[in-house]
Design a protein around this nucleic acid. Structure first.
Lengths: 122, 122
DNA sequence: GAAAGTAGTTTCCTTTTGGAAACTGCTATC
DNA sequence: GATAGCAGTTTCCAAAAGGAAACTACTTTC
C-alpha cells in the first residue's frame, strides 16, 4: 500500500502552508525585519539614516531591500523637495500590520536567549 | 557634525534587534517553518512521513533541517525498537513555544493573500 | 530472490545571497 | 575650489543555500 500525505493534504493545512510561504517570500533575507522594525520605531528616515541605524548593512543591500519592501507596499518612499534632495522612507499602514509578527519574533528571541543562559548557568 | 544612529542605539532596541537575529538564525531557510508546522499538527512522524507531508522537500534538505532543529531542541528524534527500524520525530515542549509565532506568520500570510486578491478585483 | 519500504548520505551542480570598494552626480558649506 | 553630505548604482567576488539523482544498508513481504 502506497502512503500519501495525511496532514498537509487537508485544505486547511494547505492554505496555512501557502500563507507561510507567502509571508516568508516577502520577508526573507537578512535585513527586512531590521529595516521594518527600525521604520516602525522611527517614523520617517532618510537613506543615510537607515544606513546608520541598521547596523552592518551596506548601501547596496539597503537599496535593494528598500525597493523590495516598497514594491510590496510595506514602506513608502517620498522624494522631498529640499536642497540637497532628501528621501523620506516610512512604514505604510499596511506595513504596520506586521507589528504583531515582528513583536512575536522579538519576544521569542528574547526568551530563547534567556533559556540558553539558564541552561548554561545550571 | 557627524551623525550617529539614534533609534537602534538605545539598549531596548539593541536587545530587540539581537532577539530577531537569534530567532531568524534558528528558523532561516525554506523549510523550517513547514517542518515545525507539520510536527505541531501531526504529533509523531517518521522520516518518510515528513518527506511526504512537506511538499517539495528532498531527502537531503529534510535530513539537514531535522538535524538543525534537533540541535536547537525544537524537535526530538527517537529511534524506535521496531523491525525495520523507524525513527519518531516530534515537536518538543520548547518547540511548541513557537506556535504563536507560526500562527502569527500564517495569519499575516492569509490576510496578505486576501489583500492581493481584493486589489486585483477592484 | 526480487521488490518495496525503512532512514538516511554523497556527489555534483546551479542559483541565490550577501558584502566590499569604487564610482556617479548633485548641493551646500568652509 | 576643496570637502563633506545626500542618495544611491555598479562591479566583482565569495559563500551559502538548495535540488536532482544515485547510492548505502537493512528488513520484510510477495
Amino acid at each position: 500500500m502506497k502512503k500519501n500525505a495525511q496532514i498537509n493534504s487537508t485544505p486547511v493545512c494547505q492554505v496555512r502552508m501557502q500563507a507561510i510561504t507567502d509571508a516568508m517570500s516577502l520577508l526573507s533575507g537578512k535585513w527586512k525585519f531590521h529595516i521594518l522594525g527600525t521604520l516602525i520605531e522611527g517614523s520617517t528616515l532618510g537613506f543615510m539614516d537607515l544606513l546608520r541605524e541598521v547596523k552592518g548593512i551596506g548601501s547596496k543591500m539597503l537599496s535593494k531591500e528598500l525597493q523590495d519592501l516598497e514594491m510590496n507596499n510595506l514602506i513608502s518612499r517620498t522624494v522631498m523637495n529640499t536642497k540637497p534632495i532628501t528621501v523620506a522612507y516610512s512604514i505604510t499602514e499596511y506595513g504596520k500590520t506586521l507589528s504583531p509578527l515582528i513583536d512575536e519574533m522579538a519576544k521569542w528571541g528574547i526568551n530563547y536567549r534567556k533559556s540558553v543562559y539558564e541552561k548554561r548557568d545550571k
